[in-house]
Design a protein around this nucleic acid. Sequence first.
DNA 1: ATGTATGCAAAACATTTGCACCTGG
DNA 2: CCAGGTGCAAATGTTTTGCATACAT
Lengths: 141, 141
Amino acid sequence: MEGKDLRKAGLKVTLPRLKILEILEGGNVRHVSAEDIYKRLLETNEDIGLATVYRVLTQFEAAGLVTRHHFEDGMAVFELNHGTHHDHIVCLDCNRVEEFVDSGIEDRQTTVAERLGFEIRDHSLILYGRCRRPGCPSRKS
Amino acid sequence: MEGKDLRKAGLKVTLPRLKILEILEGGNVRHVSAEDIYKRLLETNEDIGLATVYRVLTQFEAAGLVTRHHFEDGMAVFELNHGTHHDHIVCLDCNRVEEFVDSGIEDRQTTVAERLGFEIRDHSLILYGRCRRPGCPSRKS
DNA sequence: ATGTATGCAAAACATTTGCACCTGG
DNA sequence: CCAGGTGCAAATGTTTTGCATACAT
């Protein structure tokens, strides 16, 4: 029984919340938009409204289960929190997203914040570039 | 005559573009939304439509005159490019924005991107925290 | 039972676009 | 004069909300 995570987060265990959590856990894609999830639900013939998807994702975020990111296309994407913090690098051509952690960067962020008199609470670091892997459109040039 | 910047950017010198550039240069606020600029124009009794503000800002961005940022509220803010690159730290309580540059962070970003096989083109680093300065609401606690 | 969650449709919001008119060079 | 710029209104795309109904505990 996997409703544990939900109950532990103080959320009533309902079918929409279970299904959405399931999709987030279904590892094939780590960063999904509300619309992505909604489409996935339709494919599985689940009768769940888009509004509910947004509501549930917002609750999950408040409960610390997921993180909301704003990549530069403006549309929000959500990612299941698997404990470890990490930053992102996004390919401008194929939209592939890789994750990384660099303790040097993390440390210096804290130092910089202190120097400016801030008590740091969070940060968002996104690198943009070209990955030029097989399958990436930038390869064609 | 200040239309020089515009003409140099390959843009026809028109009244809306001049007025908007003027507001961006009017140093009191460095990060403004399209709506902010529109309101400022209304206060000055300029008859410029919101659509034009968006169009002009997009052109300015394409011309490299301004940079568009997505802070975490989702609404885009624009900032005049004064040459030097910098990152941002935003106070979660009073929304004050400070700028900083840390060459250590910059260097490691390049290193990380290379390690992951990316040719880095740009990045967005935003720290979030509490500044606890006089006038900052977090002070009241 | 009862308070909360959901679905649907409509609202709200930021941003973009179509089109007739105006303006800068 | 004429290509390009602008205002207005309407369209778009994403996210939120109101409300009557359905569900978990």
